[in-house]
Amino acid sequence: MKSADIRALVTAVVCIVLAALVPFVFNGYWLSIALTAMMYIALSTSWALFSGPTHYISLASGAFFGVGGYLVATGMSDYNQSFWLMMFVAAIAATVLAGLIGLATLRLSGVYFVIFTLGLAEMIRNLVSWVQNNFLGSRGLYVLTDFTEAHIYWMLLTVASAVFIFGWLVERSRLGFALKIIGNDETVARHVGINTAWTKVVLFMSTGFFAALVGAIIAPRYSYIEPNLVFSPELSFLVVIMALLGGTHRLWGPLLGVIPFTLIWEAISIWIPNFTTLFLGIAFLTIVYFVPNGFVGLLEKTRGSRGVKAGS
């Protein structure tokens, strides 16, 4: 038990150090791919912390990501605030937003929740565009910093590491145990004294926090921000696909989905851009029909069957 913990810790530290070295080895195109992958690692892992145990499929990542990017942009462009302050404000704002959404929807069945989050990014984008066009004047928003791709990459790595630490702590806490019980049987959870609504809301708020943070950090990469760019429903779906593809019942599961999927997605976007939607659909169907427990599930299954063979 103890030694397994230590081994996990060492592996994690080695992985983080290796990941931190990436900008020294790659630059240009491959660094930008690594950056995208790092962004999805943070987003998908954080998503899976909530959606894995509870089975509530959240499509709100795009909305929170957008809140992060947009607030940084408007704060820096319109109000002359510093990037760091706005990053903080954005993360807090998205956490509060997630809390409100959670309180309204997480008491109810999972279907209501998916539906509510499905159009959320689009709805907020409409609202923001409307406010911008009618009250603020539709100027473009500029995010001018002296961050390089490498800087952004390291910041994302920090967020991703924070997500992993958070997940590791949750898994060992009462909160994580409560979440596991809720995922098994919500009625039982209530009857052993778990405040199920609150537990779900807290975890959902954490996804809002991290997604907004990622959105805020990515903003300087675009330098010119408009609502259509940052409130992307597609991002929500990609996060879900990558997490499920990797497997949500292990902390490191989504990682296994993000890396191959980012590469494939990149290739498709370049070579056959008209087929991205079709490909998203195929990815969803593949997950449901062929890898319902993700790559982690496949791994464990092959390892398990080998174990059985060895035992018999």
């Binding site: 939607t277 079709l278 490909f279 659909g281 195929i282 990815a283």
Partner: peptide, 8 residues
């Protein structure tokens, strides 16, 4: 999945 495939 079906929805995306159909849109595609």
């Amino acid at each position: 999945g079906m929805s995306f495939v159909l849109v595609g």
